[in-house]
Amino acid sequence: MRIVQNISAALAAYGLIQRGGLVFGDGDVAPDGPAGRPARSVLLVGQAGAAPWPHFQRWREAQPASPDNPLDSWSREVIGAVALVFGARAVSPSDKPYLPFQQWAMRAEGLRPSPLGILMHPEYGLWHAYRGALLFEVELQFGEVRKQSHLCDLCVGKPCLKSCPVSAYSETGFAYEQCLGHVRGPSGGACRTQGCRDRNACPYGTAYRYPDDVQAFHMKSYAGL
C-alpha cells in the first residue's frame, strides 16, 4: 500500500490522481510489464475535474511545435516519468492494440457506464477521465473495492438523453455521424464552445464540470477542427 501512496503523491504534481487498481487473475490476459513478462498488477491514472489543465497548458506553451494529439502526448510524458521512478511500464488508452481500460476501470472502482457510455462516478459524475495506467510485475495491495450506487439508476428524468439538439444519444446507442455533422456544422457553435449538451445536462458531479475552454478543446479534437 505504501507504493500506491507514493505514486499518488508523484501524480499530484501534475494534477493527476490514481484511480484504483487490480491484480490480474488466472483468467486475465495481462499485458507485458516493464521487463517483458506478464504484468501482475495495474494501477489506473486519471483525473477528477479539470485539475491537470494548468499543468498541461504550461507544458503545451513550452513545446517548440504542437503535437497532433497534445493531451495524449503530455499524458504519456508525465505518466511515463512516474513509471520510471517506480519501475513500472506506462500504457495509454490510445495505445494500439487497445487495452481494456474501461473494463479495468469498472473492476478497479466498481463503476458502471452512463447512457452516454462514460462511466458514472458517485462523486465526479461524468467529469473524470483515465489518462493512462502503470503496469507492475509484482502484486500491489489495493483497498477493497466498495459497492457503489449507480446514480443513473436513481435519475428519473434522464436529461442526458433529452438535451442534444439532434438527439445523438438514445437508449439504442450513439448516432456518431449525426453528432459529428452537427458539431461541425453552422448550428453546432454552442456544442463546439461549451461542450456536449447531453453531458452538461447530467445533474451529478457538477462541482467537477470542466470549464468551457477545456470542453471546447475536447470538442475541437473530437470534431477534427
Results as ranks from 00 to 15, higher is better:
131 R>W: 07
158 K>G: 01
176 Y>G: 13
134 L>I: 10
145 V>I: 00
175 A>D: 07
106 M>V: 02
202 C>T: 01
122 P>A: 01
211 P>M: 08
211 P>Q: 07
181 G>V: 03
108 A>T: 03
181 G>L: 02
191 C>F: 12
204 Y>M: 08
141 Q>N: 08
170 S>N: 08
148 Q>G: 09
160 C>Y: 07
126 L>K: 00
146 R>Y: 09
123 E>W: 13
110 G>N: 03
157 G>H: 15
207 A>Y: 12
200 N>Q: 15
134 L>C: 10
147 K>G: 01
210 Y>F: 12
193 T>A: 15
116 L>K: 07
108 A>N: 05
155 C>P: 06
156 V>A: 10
160 C>Q: 05
142 F>Q: 04
161 L>E: 08
196 C>G: 13
176 Y>W: 13
160 C>R: 03
113 P>V: 02
98 Y>A: 13
145 V>G: 03
115 P>Y: 02
151 L>M: 02
121 H>E: 03
143 G>H: 10
134 L>Y: 07
172 T>Y: 15
113 P>F: 00
192 R>F: 04
106 M>F: 01
111 L>D: 02
182 H>F: 08
125 G>T: 01
173 G>I: 06
123 E>P: 05
181 G>P: 09
206 T>S: 15
141 Q>M: 10
183 V>Y: 04
180 L>T: 10
112 R>V: 05
199 R>Q: 12
108 A>D: 00
96 K>R: 11
109 E>G: 03
166 V>W: 00
110 G>A: 08
113 P>S: 04
146 R>M: 12
101 F>C: 01
206 T>N: 12
158 K>E: 12
148 Q>I: 08
156 V>P: 13
143 G>E: 05
210 Y>R: 02
155 C>E: 07
170 S>Q: 11
186 P>R: 15
174 F>Q: 03
154 L>Q: 13
192 R>Q: 11
156 V>Q: 11
130 Y>S: 12
142 F>Y: 06
168 A>L: 10
137 E>C: 12
200 N>R: 14
195 G>H: 10
186 P>C: 15
141 Q>E: 01
206 T>P: 14
197 R>F: 14
137 E>Y: 14
159 P>M: 10
135 L>Q: 06
